[in-house]
Computed example of a mutant assay.
Amino acid sequence: MKRNRALLALMPIALVSTLLAACSSSEPTTGPSGVDCTPAGAASSALKIEGDFGTAVTLASDVPVTADALERSVLIQGDGEVVQAGDEISTMVTYINGTSGDVLNSQQIDLVYDTDQIEPWAFDIINCSSFGDRVAAVAPVVEVLGAGGGVNVGMEDTDSFVLVFDFLEACEALTPRDANFPEVDLGDGTTEPVITIPACMEPPAELEIEVLVEGDGPVVEADQNIMTNYVGVDWDGAVRFDGNWSETGIQFSTAEGALISGFTQAMVGQKIGSTILVTMPSELGYNDGMTRTFVLQLVSVA
């Protein structure tokens, strides 16, 4: 497995609204790894987070939120097993600028809980966590990205991140593929579609393309610029991680290598005006071990 970096590519996310508050002791204990649990502090204990468990969340606390060293608080106490070194885990991670309160990134990440696989700050947040927990941390930018690293996300070295980890229950076994999924609600066609996929369902091994709405425009060819709307979700549970849906769309090129391979294969040969459902294995997507599903709307030739 590739080493998980501190921040993934920035992307828009959906916001949700359930109010939660911190409720953690500040006394450190020892986790199963033999390393002391990172203690809570004044900043992490005061955090208020809005969002349903397992979804993108937002910060409801007053800003700025800062800490001189990593602080960790448990906001929701799960009833699962304690995460052990070497466990393969899925966690919904939201990165928030503690100075502005802006959400920088939110995505479900699959990783191995091991010092050789993840950054030290992430190891310290995961240590002592259980499946079903929501853990929030406040960490100085320099501890996560190193000196000067914050410039890439519009932050100063004196700023802090608010990091929210939802530890999803591990799948004991994958259920057989249900042909009724992915399920797509297109709405009225002007708003972003909603994709539904049950958690822990066997993903397809090959590229799947389904035309949901066939357009009547010209056929998309290679080496064209196409105005496109899209929304993407992780296969496991259909957690949204990226998207853009507007009247005009954004410009994508079908030139070789301009997009992930699954996108290009799905677009070329389809008619402008079409809406397409695409599910692609990792090797045709971001090559990160995760299957993903997209809805693409081919708006016009640029």
Results as ranks from 00 to 15, higher is better:
residue 56 A to I: 03
residue 57 V to L: 10
residue 57 V to E: 05
residue 58 T to G: 12
residue 59 L to G: 13
residue 59 L to M: 11
residue 59 L to K: 11
residue 59 L to E: 07
residue 60 A to M: 05
residue 60 A to L: 03
residue 60 A to P: 01
residue 60 A to S: 02
residue 62 D to Q: 15
residue 62 D to P: 08
residue 63 V to Y: 09
residue 64 P to R: 13
residue 64 P to G: 06
residue 64 P to Q: 03
residue 64 P to T: 04
residue 65 V to Y: 07
residue 67 A to E: 04
residue 67 A to W: 12
residue 68 D to H: 10
residue 68 D to P: 01
residue 69 A to R: 12
residue 70 L to S: 02
residue 70 L to N: 08
residue 70 L to E: 00
residue 70 L to G: 01
residue 70 L to Q: 13
residue 71 E to L: 03
residue 71 E to D: 04
residue 72 R to F: 05
residue 72 R to L: 02
residue 72 R to D: 08
residue 73 S to P: 04
residue 75 L to H: 11
residue 76 I to L: 10
residue 76 I to V: 10
residue 77 Q to Y: 14
residue 78 G to E: 04
residue 79 D to R: 15
residue 80 G to S: 14
residue 80 G to I: 04
residue 80 G to H: 14
residue 81 E to L: 03
residue 81 E to F: 04
residue 83 V to D: 14
residue 84 Q to H: 01
residue 85 A to Q: 09
residue 85 A to W: 08
residue 86 G to D: 08
residue 87 D to Q: 12
residue 87 D to R: 07
residue 88 E to C: 05
residue 88 E to S: 11
residue 88 E to G: 11
residue 88 E to F: 06
residue 89 I to A: 00
residue 89 I to Y: 15
residue 90 S to C: 05
residue 90 S to I: 08
residue 91 T to R: 00
residue 91 T to K: 03
residue 92 M to V: 03
residue 93 V to K: 15
residue 93 V to P: 04
residue 95 Y to N: 01
residue 96 I to G: 00
residue 96 I to W: 11
residue 96 I to R: 07
residue 97 N to V: 00
residue 97 N to S: 03
residue 97 N to G: 01
residue 97 N to R: 09
residue 99 T to W: 10
residue 99 T to D: 13
residue 99 T to L: 07
residue 100 S to L: 02
residue 100 S to D: 11
residue 101 G to P: 09
residue 101 G to W: 03
residue 102 D to V: 09
residue 102 D to W: 05
residue 104 L to N: 08
residue 104 L to H: 10
residue 106 S to W: 05
residue 106 S to M: 00
residue 107 Q to E: 11
residue 108 Q to L: 05
residue 110 D to Q: 12
residue 110 D to I: 10
residue 112 V to T: 07
residue 112 V to S: 12
residue 113 Y to F: 09
residue 114 D to Q: 03
residue 114 D to Y: 09
residue 115 T to V: 04
residue 115 T to H: 15
residue 115 T to Q: 15
residue 116 D to W: 03
residue 118 I to P: 15
residue 118 I to M: 08
residue 118 I to K: 15
residue 119 E to W: 04
residue 120 P to T: 05
residue 121 W to N: 06
residue 122 A to Y: 11
residue 122 A to C: 06
residue 123 F to W: 13
residue 124 D to A: 07
residue 124 D to W: 07
residue 125 I to L: 11
residue 125 I to R: 09
residue 127 N to E: 08
residue 128 C to L: 02
residue 128 C to Q: 07
residue 128 C to H: 00
residue 129 S to Q: 07
residue 130 S to V: 10
residue 132 G to R: 13
residue 133 D to N: 13
residue 134 R to F: 06
residue 134 R to T: 06
residue 135 V to M: 13
residue 135 V to H: 15
residue 138 V to G: 10
residue 138 V to E: 12
residue 139 A to H: 13
residue 140 P to A: 01
residue 141 V to A: 09
residue 142 V to K: 15
residue 143 E to Q: 10
residue 143 E to P: 04
residue 143 E to Y: 08
residue 143 E to C: 04
